[in-house]
């Protein structure tokens, strides 16, 4: 492998990680924009996506059933959590909600251990995506390419929806000024619920597409949570553009850091987080000015 090919591969690896982070952070960040609360159990939902995907793939012997089933399954669980726990905590304020979701991580991780055990479980890559594709003159695993394409498609879809549809306009208005939006007759509660569902579905989707690459393990809940939180803080809580920018920054720093500064790679993102908090605590692309 020549130098250029090596860097091209790293670039694609970085992009692939960024896309996974994007799928997770976008739900978190928009929910924050609407209700100033962060779901710390979001990583646990990602983990559930992977495990549900594993089970569906095992029963049906079909990856695509898992691909569509896992997001739906996670959304159903998310709705149960939302109505059963999070919504009831509305009056108590965002802080209590965050603490409750922190408690949920403990519960969900242990439940997963009970249901699926503690060992890593994988999903075989679907046949159509096995093998390599050739891009930029290098060959790259087709499945990883699929993750990148999927991330870009979701990104484009969400951007279009936010910019062009009336639903998107309502969402932007509510993030910008929730009180004003509800005074104008926007049902913020309903909006919130739908955004929460989309966030859960995307977390489940991220989990099921990650499973063939990383396998499903109980540790993945917190392993992914921290980089996702760093993404939303760096990008600016509540902002879609921030989630895109933050995901790319964190994804590339993690990937290239591991190659260029192996002994420091694991703390690079934390340094970035510290720098953001000191210099620009509102994030790079804040939702409100």
């Amino acid at each position: 492998m020549s130098g250029t090919e090596f860097w091209a591969t790293q670039f694609l690896n970085g992009l692939q990680l960024s896309m996974l982070l994007f799928l997770l952070s976008v739900g978190l960040t928009i929910i924050f924009g609407l209700m100033h609360f962060v779901n710390l159990a979001h990583g646990a939902l990602y983990m559930l996506g992977a495990y549900i995907g594993v089970s569906i793939a095992m029963w049906t012997d079909n990856y695509w059933a898992a691909f569509f089933g896992a997001p739906i399954g996670v959304t159903i669980i998310g709705i149960a959590l939302y109505t059963g726990v999070i919504k009831r905590m509305r009056k108590e304020g965002p802080m209590s909600q965050v603490l409750v979701t922190f408690g949920l991580i403990f519960v969900i991780v242990d439940l997963v251990r009970i249901v699926w055990g503690s060992i890593a479980l994988g999903i075989p890559t679907p046949e159509i995506l096995q093998g390599q594709v050739s891009i930029f003159g290098i060959s790259y695993p087709a499945y990883r390419m699929f993750i990148i394409a999927l991330g870009l498609a979701v990104m484009a879809g969400l951007s279009l929806m936010l910019a062009r549809t009336s639903y998107g306009a309502m969402l932007r208005a509510s993030v910008e000024n929730g009180e004003m939006a509800s005074a104008m007759g926007i049902d913020v509660e309903k909006l919130l619920f739908s955004v929460f569902c989309v966030g859960c579905a995307l977390a489940g989707l991220a989990g099921v597409v990650a499973a063939p690459v990383f396998s499903a393990t109980p540790a993945m809940a917190t392993d992914i949570l921290i980089p996702t939180l760093i993404v939303v803080v760096i990008g600016g809580l509540g902002s879609l553009t921030g989630a895109i920018v933050g995901s790319l920054i964190v994804g590339f720093i993690q990937t290239f850091g591991a190659v260029l500064l192996p002994s420091f790679s694991s703390i690079l993102v934390y340094i970035l987080l510290a720098g953001t908090l000191i210099i620009r605590p509102e994030g790079l692309v804040p939702a409100r000015k």
Binding site: L40, M95, V98, I226, L273, P281
Partner: peptide, 28 residues
Amino acid sequence: AITANVGGIFFIMATLAFGQMAYVIVFE
């Protein structure tokens, strides 16, 4: 000192992250 400027939820997220940083450093 790093988190003093940010309140509430940011503080929670940042402390969670810096705690995990210490874990990762020791682990590796």
